[in-house]
């Protein structure tokens, strides 16, 4: 146990890194995913901005990118990372890759939740003279808010999961801490403390998400 106390500063730093990676990825990736999801929904045949070409392109892109395992995805976009953020390792690099990866995952969830909104509701908004963009933002998103929050909660958990691999690319975080300070030194308390920390983090996120979703659904 004293090894853990000796490494308390490292542990704190690991938590900070994980929180940084996860929160930026959920917020930035979530925002980008929302846009992608809205594009997928809106350009679908018969919808507000029906556009076959745009839908096909985004749809194929999402289908191709989404299933790529995170480690491979991060490796594959290294040229892009060099171009945009100038590095391929470290916390920022991992956060960048994770944001993108989360965006593609969330885009489908957004699209599917928007598709569950009754088309009649959209028709009512159109009949009231609303502009399509305003219908997307002030009708569709509020109508699907409960399931959307649950979808984002689901993605938050997945992002925490993927963030554990950050250590592979020098990104630090709790996963890295558990391996380099824990299992590699046969220091099991450190492993379990890391596990417990992640469980608490996930539970807190899950609790918050469920609570917000319940409020949105008025249940």
């Amino acid at each position: 146990m004293h090894e853990f106390l000796d490494n308390l500063a490292v542990y704190r730093e690991a938590i900070r890194q994980t929180l940084f990676i996860v929160s930026i990825s959920v917020v930035a990736g979530g925002a980008l995913g929302l846009v992608l999801g809205l594009v997928l929904y809106a350009t679908r045949a018969g919808n507000l901005f029906a556009n076959r070409a745009a839908f096909l392109i985004v749809n194929v892109l999402v289908n191709v990118v989404r299933p790529i395992p995170f480690v491979i995805f991060l490796t594959a976009i290294q040229p892009l990372m060099l171009h945009t953020i100038g590095t391929t390792i470290g916390t920022n690099a991992v956060t960048f890759a994770l944001s993108l990866s989360a965006a593609f995952a969330i885009s489908r969830i957004v699209e599917q939740n928007l598709l569950t909104v009754e088309p009649g509701v959209v028709e009512a908004a159109r009949a009231a003279g609303a502009r399509p963009i305003s219908i997307l933002l002030t009708v569709l998103i509020p109508e699907a808010l409960g399931p959307l929050i649950l979808g984002y909660t689901f993605i938050f958990v997945a992002v925490v999961d993927m963030s554990a691999q950050a250590g592979l690319f020098g990104g630090g975080g709790l996963g890295d801490f558990a391996i380099t300070y824990g299992s590699q030194r046969y220091n099991w308390p450190i492993v379990y403390i890391s596990v417990a920390t992640i469980v608490v983090l996930v539970q807190a996120g899950q609790f918050l998400g469920s609570w917000l979703a319940r409020r949105a659904l008025r249940r």
């Binding site: 009754e118 009649g120 509701v121 028709e123 009512a124 009708v139 509020p142 109508e143 808010l145 949105a216």
Partner: peptide
């Protein structure tokens, strides 16, 4: 409309 199409939100 037949199905009312009210905004649930």
């Amino acid at each position: 409309f037949q199905q009312f199409n009210l905004f649930r939100s």
